[in-house]
């Protein structure tokens, strides 16, 4: 089945409308920073080149530049102000990491004593051989044989979940997987969303009642997989290198596969409508979809996606 549709119409630009939207900055204070509730004004989106304020009264931060003594936005995003520092947080951007973030990444390269990991950041992240759990106990010296068989742990293309440990001098991330929660990913599929949509949660490991596990990486990579039962999780004592670094999937029944696909499509729809993702949003969305009893692929149709987002945002308020 193939159907053709038109591109969504661009918003009609009237020359006069455009002129009105950028008020001439004679007072240089288009953004009303004086009222204290940033709620209303903070939600306003900037466009690149938009004059924010005077550079004499404020300092420029990330996402802005100064020209003609005016602070000008260089990206589309939301304005943030800390005292006199004005910055713009871009809505479409690479992942800006912080130490302690949980990320999902893909190995791109195997190098001496380290792996390069694509984590949707500006540079590839680095996973040192010394920051992974190796077979034979957590406290163990790395030996030369480990270096020679690095590909038995992670090889190119492998997906892993890790935590941001530190930054290098050039801004690249250093990751670690020294916990039994972290490591290689199997039994599922990856969905990519813009990183700003991932809210910081108490736990980024979410289990949905439909037998689906989610790992919401803060870098916008979301791993949707079959539920791992708590009893089957590799315990701290019996660290089983075979299981942790295995490439083989478990047997997955069709219902679970369907649920994984359904959850992936829900995430895609929510991301397309720019809805921030949390565990509760995903749960509500899944329940709504089950109530509708629609087919998995129907979710990607614009009308159903629209209805889903409307239903979700109605519940939020």
């Amino acid at each position: 089945m193939i159907t053709f549709a038109s591109f969504p119409a661009a918003p009609a630009h009237d020359g006069y409308d455009g002129a009105r939207r950028y008020p001439d900055g004679e007072d240089g204070m288009e953004v009303d920073f004086d009222d204290d509730d940033m709620g209303a004004s903070g939600r306003k989106l900037t466009s690149p080149g938009e004059v924010l304020t005077s550079s004499q009264a404020f300092m420029r931060g990330h996402g802005t530049f100064v020209d003609n003594e005016e602070v000008i936005a260089s990206v589309t995003g939301v304005i943030e102000r800390v005292n006199k520092l004005i910055s713009v947080r871009a809505i479409r951007t690479r992942y800006n990491a912080e130490v302690g973030d949980l990320v999902v990444g893909r190995i791109t390269e195997v190098q001496p004593r380290r792996w390069k990991v694509d984590a949707n950041s500006r540079q590839d992240a680095v996973l040192m051989l010394s920051s992974v759990n190796l077979p034979g106990g957590v406290q163990r010296r790395k030996v030369e044989s480990d270096e020679l068989q690095m590909r038995t742990f992670f090889e190119e293309g492998d997906l892993l979940v890790a935590e941001v440990q530190a930054f290098f001098a050039d801004g690249a991330l250093s990751l670690h997987t020294r916990s039994l929660k972290y490591g290689k990913l199997r039994n599922g599929q990856l969905v990519t969303v813009p990183p700003v949509l991932i809210r910081r949660l108490k736990s980024h490991f979410v289990s949905l009642p439909c037998g689906v596990d989610l790992i919401l990486g803060l870098n916008g990579y979301i791993w949707v997989s079959k539920l791992t039962k708590a009893s089957e999780q590799e315990g701290e004592e019996g660290f089983d290198a075979e299981a942790v670094y295995s490439n083989k999937n478990d047997d997955i029944d069709d219902a679970t596969r369907a649920a994984v696909s359904r959850v992936s499509n829900i995430i895609r729809v929510l991301a397309a409508h720019f809805v921030p993702l949390t565990d509760t949003v995903l749960l509500d969305a899944y329940e709504w979809v089950i109530e509708q009893e629609s087919d998995i692929k129907d979710l990607l149709q614009p009308e159903i996606g629209e209805a889903l987002v409307t239903a979700i945002s109605a519940q939020r308020q």
């Binding site: 893909r106 293309g157 492998d158 997906l159 290689k184 990913l185 199997r186 039994n187 599922g188 599929q189 990856l190 490439n247 083989k248 999937n249 997955i252 069709d254 596969r257 369907a258 696909s261 359904r262 992936s264 499509n265 895609r268 087919d295 998995i296 692929k297 979710l299 990607l300």
Partner: peptide
């Protein structure tokens, strides 16, 4: 893509009825 992703896609294709990652 990783080996497990590859086998996940392939097994789903072989299943009856076949299922793709976006349904």
């Amino acid at each position: 893509i990783s080996k497990s992703e590859k086998s996940y896609i392939q097994t789903a294709l072989e299943a009856v009825p076949p299922l793709r990652e976006d349904g």
